[in-house]
Write a protein that binds this DNA or RNA. Structure first.
Lengths: 190, 190, 190, 190
DNA sequence: TATGAATGAGTCTTCATTCAT
DNA sequence: GATGAATGAAGACTCATTCAT
């Protein structure tokens, strides 16, 4: 379990990376935010990049864990499908900054680290494909290229951070249902 | 009209910004790519940020122009809708690097410049909303929150740069039709 | 008398200073090697430089003590001369790392500390001069500038750490006799 | 041919590396010495280590070149031998600072770079061995382990930087002859 | 138009040392 | 004795930009 300070630093980094971007955030900025000297940070992190890695890793893992839980439920595909939308948007909006860092800044990781995140992201895509394939197998969904459909869905959902305004009327769950409906109509057998 | 050299520089910048990201690309990198000295670049550009601005501006303008052309056609909404998908994906894939810079790096612009791009992006969203509203008015599409639907669509389409592989079987137009179908089924009246 | 821990730390420092050099060795490195925390080291040492001082001091003292013992023997100069070579190379090779730290890193000491070492080193040179002068007085050695000769000898002997390989065929005593022979022939009266 | 500024920087570095040591000399120190900003130095050097590399490389090359010239002369071995001593001490004392950097600081180079210098140093040793072998072949020198003898000689000569005071009565050539005599008597056939 | 020298602020990171617990 | 958090100065190096030639 990470020390309080470490968590505090991570949270500060998330805030700053979201607001200014990874590259535009200096280690000094983070230190200031936490009230430590630049050098002192290095008791808790090994490098700025490693900090980004931890954040993005934690973020993608959250998405994966939540979707896996849903996959394991004994429910009609249709309901799983809707829950998946809800899960994604709840993960996204409940810690929007972290999600933004994942979606926008992971690219700044070094090749190796980036590939680790990429792999976890691919896993997430697979989970979505599995839902679609289940629906196909059960006859509830008509035939589609499930990977393409999943990518379409994920695009819609991930784009949300670019425009979602949490003070607005739409709750994450409401939005999830709106989006789910569009896609459900698009793929359900009539 | 931009001199040849200026265009050459812009192209080099696009390539590099796409490959390494805006911040990770140095002015030196660009100069090397063009075969000029760092200092000489400044005869053609006023700043690195300005270069990014020009690229993103040109990119978003391309998207807007192409979609406007389609809007002005005298065609059934359904066909306009499909053409819009094709237009977007052709713009995107025909100059993927530029589109990537737009979608991924515009955020690195200063506040003011960024807001200019944002405005053009909002315009683009409006065009999509207009298509959906047209369909609603003509009775072809059933009632939806058109802005939400447009955002869903744009999310799907813009996400494409994250996974699209031009060497793969799917042409931009094929992909456009696949995506259009999903959304058409989602919003067309039965 | 130094505690065990203190000795352990000194030994670790010797190893590390020899391998990486004084400047390139961090206090952290030493702490790691001993299995202590950085902060804990300071119960045993007062500073990194002081550690170096102790090591070099101990080293040069060893050389001096051993040579003094030989000087006090009642033996023909010729034999003392040879014993001196043996003494030097035994001191050097029996704790090569320490000798290397003395010969290579003493320069990193602050001015004052360095001068203390320098003084002890000068003493060592004097002992060698005395041997040569004894030989001259007894008529065994022909006339030379004894200081110059001593410096020549010490150069030969101290250079040994740069190339001596303890796994090689040559034992320190064998090497001592080889070197002693060269110089004996060089200075002995025919 | 190196620009003036580059040479100026190298000279400043030599002075500083000699006086304070490589590690204790900061890039700032060098910049100050040359009257440039820290950053400006990097127009001329690629790194501090590279600067050290250049200096040591140039130094060892000087030693090698001079000794090679002597090797190619048509002279009795005895005279070559003496010339070699003179050559070494002239190289050493004519640019003492540079020689000191070579002898004392080359160890601070990274493994790869250090091995390059080491190789050139080994070559230099070989040249000395060849002189001794020539003397052996011609019957002028009696049988010795030439490598050991060469190492003994080089030790004597390289140690000189530790005590030689140029304001003192002894010129490099005089010193060379003193040293050469010691070793000549040590190895010449009677 | 093109150069390349120069800047100076800024980057991340390291490190010897101190000190409250 | 031992810890480990904290410091603060210093480290090498990068970079966008300017400008005299």
């Amino acid at each position: 379990m990470a020390s309080n300070k470490h968590e505090e630093i991570a949270q500060a980094a998330i805030r700053l990376f979201e607001k200014k971007g990874y590259h535009a955030t200096s280690v000094q900025d983070i230190a200031d935010e936490v009230g430590l000297q630049k050098g002192s940070l290095y008791h808790y992190i090994s490098s700025k990049e490693d900090l980004l890695m931890q954040i993005t890793h934690q973020a993608i893992n959250g998405f994966n864990r939540n979707l896996e839980k849903i996959m394991n439920l004994q429910l009609p595909v249709r309901e799983k499908f809707i829950l998946a939308f809800e899960s994604h948007l709840n993960s996204l909006t409940s810690n929007m900054s972290m999600a933004i860092v994942l979606l926008r800044e992971a690219f700044s990781l070094g090749e190796h680290q980036h590939s680790v995140i990429q792999q976890a992201t691919d896993q997430y895509l697979d989970l979505w494909c599995r839902i679609l394939d289940e629906g196909l197998a059960s006859g509830e969904f008509h035939h589609t290229n499930s990977r393409l459909t999943a990518l379409s869905i994920l695009g819609s959902l991930n784009w949300v951070y670019r425009w979602y305004d949490s003070n607005k009327r739409l709750s994450p769950n409401e939005l999830a249902r709106e989006f789910a409906n569009i896609f459900l109509r698009g793929i359900e057998r009539r």
